[in-house]
Structures are given as structure tokens and as C-alpha cells.
Design a protein around this nucleic acid. Structure first.
Length: 893
RNA sequence: GCGCUUAUAGCUCAGUUGGUUAGAGCGCUACCUUGACAUGGUAGAGGUCUCCUGUUCGAGUCAGGAUAAGCGCACCA
């Protein structure tokens, strides 16, 4: 079988994915004797396109899930999409706008129909993109937040919470988005620093005896003022408290009151109080029983309470109010003033505090148990530092405004009675008022905040409120993987709802990863134009390369910077792996697969040092991979296996075995053993890599002589499970091979530094300093010769350093002097430079050690083995320097 | 204001419980088309681990402080 010399992911990925999917590899079992492992995918918006943030989030989950699946768990990765109330409604409204229509022209029913049509047409797009990435979700169970089952769960939770008094409706000051004409929650408000103005305005005293100066950033809201306030202990104004001021531009007189909320030192120390348009003023108003005057319409224009300014937009009204004040001589000064202004996170418009009837969830009592499960460690954040942020937020939590004045979403299951005006809340659409029995019922127009249904996701997707096997098996889920930006929006609310309705946490561990930034560290966004399209990246370089790039940077929840160069680097790694497989398959073409397959063991006496070395290294790698995975150290795991493949397998092992496995090499027990080791190693390497890079590994696996049916369903290699094979590698032999490598590197170093052409055959003299080195060199002479291109290799007992390059080599106790006679080869000056440099380096490196050893504190207090180790090392270094100096002396003669 | 995070090579970052001479990728320099791979190979250059103080025989790692950058929450109208 001929493989192309370049790996082409486009030829592989989609074919492999369909094959897995059709074979049912992604399916979870409702019931099984296997240990369950479940993850719910944070449902992306149906309107969404896969971005790098998703790619990162999904790569982590897919890697975890594949790893667990290979460990024999019954794995459920639950996929789904979110109806995303505002986002989706906006998309369709924009579509309508092109037809010069608004949603009101269509009416609610027609509009919602239209959104469903849009969803049917485009909602699958992001799911298709997820498949390109390799997500091994159980697609048969895919959910949508407006599905019938999920909707049932939403209704049930709403009704339950209402009946428990935890959901209420009330006239409250809420955050209002004039662009959406809807309420939004506290979390949907983003504060941005705005350079505005602070206007100082005269408020004349009603008795005509003077005026107060009020400083405000929002002069137009004075039309809704119902008081001015000063600090109770402010001597400047003490005698005025209880009097009235004449509110400018109106005919109203409003009281001067005292409240601790006022800061004496800010501005003039006098604050206008506008209870209907400011959260702080609202509280002051409640304390003092002030009236609330709403001056805004739903669209952000001023209403009839604004008199002459009615129907102006806020900004326009502000200009006019300021101009009028100035004309009346009431404007004292205008100062530049930077302050934080709330903006709608969806539309970017300025959020208005707005008085309106909304539905709320009472959070206080619900938050308590949700705090406790994190405090007690029942739920663990990874990294742990997010615990503090979570608890802080839970401590200051406000009631959650859950009603939205939208049409797309879960319509609130509350009905208003036309005759008794009471509210009926029910899971099933009622025909009669539960209070008076009238059939004059009208359902609430508002829908629920999208996050309300998301909060139920861990169990609503598993069939709740029905009592399903799926829940018994998979709830609570094992781990939740998400970004920190939705800890409050989503994670906290899932914990609250899980505890309330399932009486158990929704997950045990919350793994929080960082945010993807561009190469300059800027947040990626469409508007900045720095967002890379993962689908394009997959097309250019393959999903595996993209996944590996992302995972190699996932460490401790830190943000990661995306660079194309790095992606190309890992694309190259895929090619390297591919070619290693290509070479190996060729070297194994006459390999006779033993009947034991993956269980087959080579005959111990036939194993070469290189074979034992690679098995030993593989064992170390497998142990490390296990530890890294368990601790969510993705970048470490990625780099561990990367360097094994490139720097152990390719750089050395394949080179070691080339002569033995060449087409012309004779058959022997040793060759068979090496072939078996190679076949086993390759098999284990693709298994180790599979969770990171599923496609290329499966493709290679399918061509391997030793394998079972499907890689993704094969087991994950662990030292414990396969101790027979890996036990054939020994640390002792591994050290021997390390010595051989060091010797080869030393010869190459001499060649390189002395500019000896690669084609130039040279002689090396190796002087072992001990019996073990002598034996090792003797047994591996041909390997040394092949890999350092020697014409002749002498192993001698004594050194003759005359006109020679020399390099001392040491591995553990084994010492070798590597000598290359230079007569007639090179300019001696180069070698003098090289040796001098080496001596300096050794001296510099051991300076600190030497100092430490001469410190009596260290010698008497440090553990004996550390001191002993240091002494030996210092002695060795001195010996090496002596050798080098001797060679140096003879060079210049 | 409260809280969190980060500072290691030119760049991007690893570095787990304190212990040999601090690592990788990219980039850079020189050489090499050697029968898996030029998306490659070999060799090399490049670091006062931000600073100060402490704990310790020993600190990139632990503690305290400073500086700088980033983020979250709450905010003075």
C-alpha cells in the first residue's frame, strides 16, 4: 500500500467522521455496567457560526470524552443548540427589514413561524461545523432549547418556583434596552467608560431666598426629579432640609431632604433625585416615600411627562434642556467628566434604568445552597481560583429579571383574567381562571430570558421531568467545560436549578478555560476583523492540526494567543507523524502478525538495546500522559506525546532500526523482535494521540498490522494495563542507549563546529572510562558508525590526544572520551575555539555548584545524597576540563 | 474601592510536591536534497526567571512588599 508523502487531511477527515458516526461510535448507553462519564456541551446559539472560542471549548471536551471512552467508560457527550432569543429574533428582523417589514407587520404568530423556518434552514450550520472539528457527541440525542421536552421542563420549573413564591411579578426599576424594547438582566449590561460632561445647575429655592447647585451627568432627567438631597451632616445645607426648590423648566416644587447616600465631597454636595431613572435614586426614593415620575417611552424617547420635550430622543432632549437652562441663566458650568455608562451587551445601545412590570426570580434563598456546594467542595472549580469569584458573586446576587419583551422564546406560562384580573400560572394552557373560573384569559406576552432554559440544560436534556434511565445513569454530569465569561450567566444558575429540582449538583467539576486572543493579544471579534474562521483553518491545515494547536496552549485557565505560525508548526507535526507511519509500514511490509495481535510479546533475548530503550521511554510517556490528563494539564500532555513522537521515535528509534529493517537486511530473530516492537509502539502512539488528533490517528491505525477494529473504541494505553510489553524496556538499557546517543551527538558536534562536510568520512576513537561503557560501545559500534557517518571507529583503552578534537561524554556512571583525529581535516583554530568554549561553559555551569559545596551550611544541612551527588558532579566536571585542556595543549603544539 | 490573574530566550509559552547545568515551538545563524518526511535533517547562538525583602543548607517555584499589564465586581450624582 502506497501512502502519499504528504498528509492531506481533506482526503481523510470527513470520510472518517461519517464512518464513526454511521458505526454508532458516538452513542452512549442509557444503561450499562460500564462506569458513566457525561459532559453537556454548552449549547451554542443556533444563529452562531463556529468561532475559535468554540473550537477551543470543544477540543477540550472532545479530548476528555475520547480519553474516557478509551478508558472504557460509558460516555455521554450531550449536544444541543440554544434558541438565543435576542440574537435569533434580530437576525430574522434584519431579514424582514430588507423586505421593508417589521415583526409587527407580520404579527406574533406569523413572525414566530418565520423564525422557525429560519432555524430549520440555517440552525444546522453550526452543528455541521462542530462535526468538522471532530466532536464525538451523541448526535441521536441532540436537543434544542425550544424542543417539546425541554419546554415542558421550563414550564414545570416556572410553575413550581411560582407556587413556592420564588417567582413574582412586580413594578420595578430594571435595565431597559431601548433598541430591543425589552428588559435585560444585570448581567447583560456592560459598563463602558464614557467621556461625558458634568453639568452644574441652579435649583432656585422655592421661597426665593437663593438657590442650590446640583451637579449631574444627565440634565434631561431633571424632568423626572422628585427631590434633591444633601448629606444629613452637611453643615452647609442643614438649615435648608425640609424646604423646597423650584424644579427648573417645570412648574413643580420638590423637597430638599437629607440622606446618607449623598457624598459631601462630590460636586456641590447636592444630588437631584430621580427615582424612575436611577437605581440609587430609586432606593433613596423608597426610603423617603417619593413619587416616581417616568419620563421615557419604551423606545427611549421622552414621554408626555416631559412636557415640551416629549418625543425627543434622550441625547436631543439633553441638548435642548441644557440650552434652555443656559438661556434662563440656570446653567453655571459644564465640566468634562469621565464615568461608566451601561450598554446593552446585545445591541450596544445605552441602557436606561426604566420602571416597568417584569417577572423576577427571588435569588436569596436559592443562592444559599448553591454557595454551600462550592464551599464544601462538592463542586470544584478548575482552576480553583474561580471559586472566590463565584462565591463573591453569589453573595451579592440580585433578583433575576427573567421576562423579555420578545416573541422568540419560551412564552411565560401565566394568564391574566379579564374579569377578576388575577394571574393563573399553569403547566398546561388553562381554559378557565383559577381564581374566578372565567374563561376570559389572555396569556402573558413576554418570553423568558434565554438563560432560564439554559439553567435547566443538565437535566432537561435527559428527559426531566420524566424519570428516565438516562438521568439515573448520567446525572450529575462529570465535568462542565466552559469559559469564565458565563460563570454567572450559566454555571451558577445551573447549580441553583439542579439543586432545586434534582436535589443534586449538575456536575462535579467546572473546568474553566481562557479566552482566545489574536497574535497581538487582542480579543478576537468580527468587528475588529481579527477573527480567524476555524472552518477555513480546518480546510487549510486540518482539524487535527487546529485541535492540537489549541490544546497545546491550554494551561491553567490562561488566555491563549492564536498564531498561524504555530498552527503551521503543528500541521508539520501531523505530517511528521504521517511519514513516521509511512516509513514504519514499509519497514513492516514483510512482518508476520503474531496470532496474539496486540497482546503479542517479542522474545526478550532478541530485543536490541534500541528496542528496550524505546519501550522504556514509552512507559515513561504513558505514565506521564495519565497524570497530565487526570490533572487537566492539556498543554503538558500534548507536549509530552509530541516530543516522544518527534524526538524519541523519529529522531532516534527509527534511525536506530533502519539498518536492521532495510529491504536488504537478513531475516533474523532480532529483526522479528524489532518489527514487533515497532508495530506495537506505533499502535500505542496513535492510541495515545487519538484524543487530541482523532482523524489522522484513526487513518493511520486502520493501516497498522497490529490493531483492533476502531481506534476510537480501542483502549487507552497505560503502563498498568500493558505491563508485560513495557516491562521489557529497562532503565538500565535505556541509560546505555542514552550513552550511545551522547556519543553520536558529540561526534556530530565536532563535525558541525569544525565545518567537516557531511559527506566527509571520518574516524573516531572512543575511550571508555569503565567496563560498562566499553561493553555498551562494543555492542553498539555499528549504530554509532551509521548515525555519525564514520568510516572507522576504534574503541581503545587509552587516549592519545595528539592533534585531536575531544569531547568528554557522561551518562550516569558511564564515561567516554570521544576523540576525532583532525590531522589534515580542518583548520586547528576552529577546534581550539570549540574546546575553549566548552571549557568555559563547564566552568560557568559548575561555578555555583562549587561555591555551594564549599559552604559548610550546605554540606552539614542538606541531605547527604544531594551533597554526594554534587561532589561527584563537580569531580566529573573537573575531570572533563582536564581532558579538554590536555587536548587543547596538544592541538597548539 | 473590593477581588482575581499574569510577569521566564527576539516572539508565544511550558516548568506538577523547593534539589543536578531552567525547557519547547516559532524566529535567527551555519551546513545538508542522506531511500519516511525540505511541512525534513545536523549543529549552533540566545536567559541576572520584573524588582526588593524574607523563610530555607538550597527559591523560577514558598511568604511579604513594590512596579507593570490584563480581567471581574461595585461605584460619586
Amino acid at each position: 500500500m502506497q501512502l502519499p508523502d504528504r498528509y492531506d487531511p481533506a482526503q481523510v477527515e470527513q470520510r472518517i467522521y461519517s464512518w464513526w458516526n454511521e458505526a454508532g461510535c458516538f452513542r452512549a448507553l442509557d444503561q450499562s455496567t460500564k462506569v458513566p462519564y457525561s459532559v453537556i456541551l454548552p449549547p451554542p446559539n443556533v444563529t452562531g457560526q463556529l468561532h475559535l472560542g468554540h473550537a477551543l471549548n470543544h477540543s477540550i471536551q472532545d479530548t476528555l470524552v475520547r480519553w474516557k471512552r478509551m478508558h472504557g467508560f460509558n460516555v455521554l457527550w450531550m449536544p444541543g443548540t440554544d434558541h438565543a432569543g435576542i440574537a435569533t429574533q434580530s437576525v430574522v428582523e434584519r431579514e424582514l427589514k430588507k423586505e421593508k417589514l417589521t415583526r409587527h407587520d407580520l404579527g406574533r404568530e406569523k413572525f414566530v413561524e418565520r423564525v422557525w423556518k429560519w432555524k430549520e434552514q440555517y440552525g444546522g450550520r453550526i452543528v455541521e461545523q462542530m462535526k468538522r472539528l471532530g466532536d464525538s457527541c451523541d448526535w441521536d440525542r441532540e436537543c434544542f432549547t425550544l424542543d417539546e421536552g425541554v419546554s415542558k421542563a421550563v414550564r414545570k420549573t416556572f410553575v413550581d418556583l411560582y407556587n413556592k413564591g420564588l417567582i413574582y411579578k412586580g413594578l420595578r426599576l430594571i435595565n431597559w434596552s431601548p433598541a430591543l424594547e425589552s428588559a435585560i438582566s444585570d448581567l447583560e449590561v456592560e459598563f463602558k467608560e464614557i467621556k461625558g460632561q458634568l453639568y452644574h445647575i441652579k435649583y432656585p429655592l422655592a421661597n426665593g431666598s437663593g438657590f442650590l447647585v446640583v451637579a449631574t451627568t444627565r440634565p434631561e432627567t431633571l424632568l423626572g426629579d422628585t427631590a434633591v438631597a444633601v448629606h444629613p451632616e452637611d453643615d452647609r445645607y442643614a438649615q435648608m432640609v425640609g424646604q423646597e426648590v423650584q424644579l427648573p423648566l417645570t412648574t413643580r416644587k420638590i423637597p430638599i431632604l437629607a440622606d446618607e447616600y449623598v457624598e459631601k465631597s462630590f460636586g456641590s454636595g447636592v444630588v437631584k433625585i430621580t427615582p424612575a431613572h436611577d437605581f440609587n435614586d430609586n432606593q433613596v426614593g423608597q426610603r423617603h416615600g417619593l413619587p416616581q415620575i417616568n419620563i421615557l417611552n419604551r423606545d427611549g424617547t421622552l414621554n408626555e411627562n416631559a412636557g415640551a420635550y416629549q418625543s425627543l430622543k434622550v441625547q436631543e432632549a439633553r441638548k435642548r434642556v441644557v440650552a434652555d437652562l443656559e438661556e434662563q441663566g440656570l446653567l453655571i458650568k459644564v465640566e468634562p467628566h469621565t464615568h461608566q455608562v451601561g450598554h446593552c451587551s446585545r445591541t450596544g445601545c445605552v441602557v436606561e434604568p426604566f420602571l416597568s412590570e417584569q417577572w423576577f426570580v427571588k435569588m436569596g434563598n436559592l443562592a444559599e445552597p448553591a454557595k454551600r456546594v462550592v464551599e464544601s467542595g462538592t463542586i470544584r472549580f478548575e482552576p480553583e481560583s474561580w471559586t472566590k469569584t463565584y462565591l463573591h458573586w453569589m453573595g451579592i446576587i440580585q433578583d433575576w429579571c427573567i421576562s423579555r419583551q420578545l416573541w422568540w422564546g419560551h412564552r411565560i406560562p401565566a394568564w391574566y383574567c379579564g374579569s377578576c384580573h388575577q394571574i393563573t400560572v399553569a403547566e398546561v394552557d388553562p381554559t378557565r381562571c383559577s381564581h374566578c373560573g372565567s374563561d376570559l384569559l389572555a396569556q402573558e406576552e413576554d418570553v423568558l430570558d434565554t438563560w432560564f432554559s439554559s439553567a435547566l440544560w443538565p437535566f432537561s436534556t435527559m428527559g426531566w421531568p420524566e424519570d428516565t434511565e438516562l438521568q439515573k445513569t448520567f446525572y450529575p454530569t462529570s465535568v462542565l467545560v466552559t469559559g469564565f465569561d458565563i460563570i454567572f450567566f450559566w454555571v451558577a444558575r445551573m447549580i441553583i436549578m439542579g439543586l432545586e429540582f434534582k436535589k443534586d449538583v449538575p456536575f462535579r467539576t467546572v473546568y474553566i478555560h481562557g479566552v482566545i486572543r489574536d497574535a497581538e493579544g487582542k480579543k478576537m471579534s468580527k468587528s475588529l476583523g481579527n477573527a480567524e474562521d476555524p472552518v477555513q483553518l480546518i480546510e487549510d491545515h486540518g482539524a487535527d492540526a487546529l485541535r492540537f494547536t489549541l490544546l497545546s496552549q491550554v494551561s491553567g485557565g490562561r488566555d491563549l494567543k492564536f498564531s498561524l505560525q504555530r498552527l503551521e508548526g503543528y500541521r508539520n507535526f501531523m505530517n511528521k507523524l504521517w511519514n513516521a507511519a509511512r516509513f514504519s509500514l514499509n519497514a513492516l511490509k514483510d512482518f508476520k502478525v503474531p496470532s496474539e495481535g496486540a497482546e503479542a510479546l517479542p522474545v526478550k533475548k532478541d530485543l536490541s538495546d534500541a528496542d528496550q530503550w524505546v519501550l522504556y521511554k514509552l512507559g515513561v510517556v504513558e505514565r506521564e500522559m495519565d497524570e497530565h490528563f487526570k490533572a487537566y494539564r492539556f498543554s503538558e500532555a500534548a507536549s509530552t506525546i509530541y516530543s516522544f513522537v518527534w524526538h524519541i521515535l523519529c529522531d532516534w528509534y527509527l534511525e536506530f532500526i533502519k539498518p536492521q529493517l532495510s529491504d536488504t537486511a537478513a531475516d533474523s530473530g532480532e529483526k522479528v523482535a524489532t518489527q514487533l516492537v515497532l508495530a506495537q509502539t506505533l499502535n500505542r502512539v496513535v492510541r495515545l494521540l487519538h484524543p487530541f488528533i482523532p482523524f489522522i490517528t484513526e487513518e493511520i491505525y486502520q493501516k497498522l498490522p497490529i490493531r483492533s477494529e476502531v481506534l476510537m473504541l480501542d483502549s487507552y494505553p497505560t503502563v498498568k494495563a500493558d505491563k508485560n510489553l513495557l516491562a521489557l524496556g529497562s532503565e538500565e538499557v535505556a541509560m546505555n542507549v542514552d550513552l550511545v546517543r551522547e556519543v553520536i551527538s558529540a561526534i556530530r558536534n565536532i563535525r558541525g563546529e569544525n565545518r567537516i562536510k557531511p559527506g566527509q568520512k571520518i574516524t573516531a576513537r572512543l575511550v571508555p572510562g569503565d567496563a560498562r561503557s566499553q561493553k555498551v560501545l562494543g555492542e553498539n559500534k555499528s549504530t554509532v558508525m551509521a548515525l555519525s557517518k564514520l568510516e572507522k571507529c576504534e574503541i581503545e583503552a587509552s587516549s592519545n590526544l595528539s592533534k585531536c578534537a575531544v569531547q568528554p561524554v557522561q551518562v550516569g556512571e558511564m564515561k567516554v572520551e570521544v576523540i576525532v583525529p583532525l590531522e589534515g581535516l580542518v583548520d586547528i583554530a576552529e577546534e581550539i575555539k570549540r574546546i575553549t568554549k566548552t571549557i568555559e561553559k563547564i566552568k560557568k555551569d559548575t561555578a555555583a555548584l562549587s561555591k555551594r559545596l564549599s559552604d559548610s551550611n550546605f554540606v552539614s544541612n542538606a541531605p547527604a545524597d544531594i551533597v554526594e551527588q554534587g561532589r561527584r558532579q563537580l569531580d566529573d566536571s573537573k575531570e572533563q576540563v582536564a581532558t579538554l585542556e590536555s587536548a587543547l595543549a596538544r592541538l597548539s603544539v
